[in-house]
């Protein structure tokens, strides 16, 4: 076990966990932040996507010991009161079916738009192909990303 001081959603959080513990489980089990989802545990599905210093990162294979001073943003901290353009676009296009993957989709999409404010279809495909949606909402996700890009 080791103590870590983590910068999450603008706040500092202390945890005392095994250094190998993935950030996903630190968030879910130790910090009571279940918005980041477990899907595969091997960075294949994207349900666990967070921002690490603004970059989309799969938290299920990211040991807490590797974080250092980097800032973590989770779906809970993407905006106050659901005001992020990507979240708003998701509601406008009524994207979600079951909704389980959507937090991860939104984190990937918001990271994409930060680095590339006007992505082409191909840019979107490349940035989003690590996020599986079993309900098949890909088309609406793409439309929502384009709407968010406009706003």
């Amino acid at each position: 076990m080791a103590k870590y001081s983590l910068k999450i959603n603008g706040k500092t959080k202390q945890v005392d966990v095994d250094p190998s513990t993935p950030v996903l489980w630190v968030l879910r089990d130790h910090l009571n932040m279940p918005g980041t989802k477990f899907g595969c545990g091997m960075a294949q599905c994207g349900a666990c996507t967070i921002h690490l210093d603004g970059n989309a990162t799969r938290s299920c294979v990211l040991p807490v010991s590797a974080i250092g001073k980097s800032a973590i943003t989770t779906i809970e901290g993407l905006s106050e009161n659901c005001t992020h353009p990507v979240q708003k676009a998701w509601l406008e296009h009524d994207v979600a079916q079951c909704g389980y993957c959507q937090g991860g989709q939104i984190m990937s999409a918001s990271a994409l738009l930060k680095s590339n404010p006007n992505p082409t279809d191909e840019d979107i495909d490349i940035a989003m192909s690590g996020n599986i949606c079993r309900c098949g909402t890909y088309l609406r996700i793409k439309e929502a990303i384009k709407t968010a890009a406009k706003n």
């Binding site: 279940p34 979240q87 009524d94 979600a96 909704g99």
Partner: peptide, 21 residues
């Protein structure tokens, strides 16, 4: 009509069995 749980979904609220605690 929009999904009645849409806002909860896009803000990462605990909705699923996995989130039950």
């Amino acid at each position: 009509k929009k999904n009645s749980e849409g806002t909860k979904v896009v803000t990462g609220k605990p909705l699923f069995g996995m989130d039950y605690k």
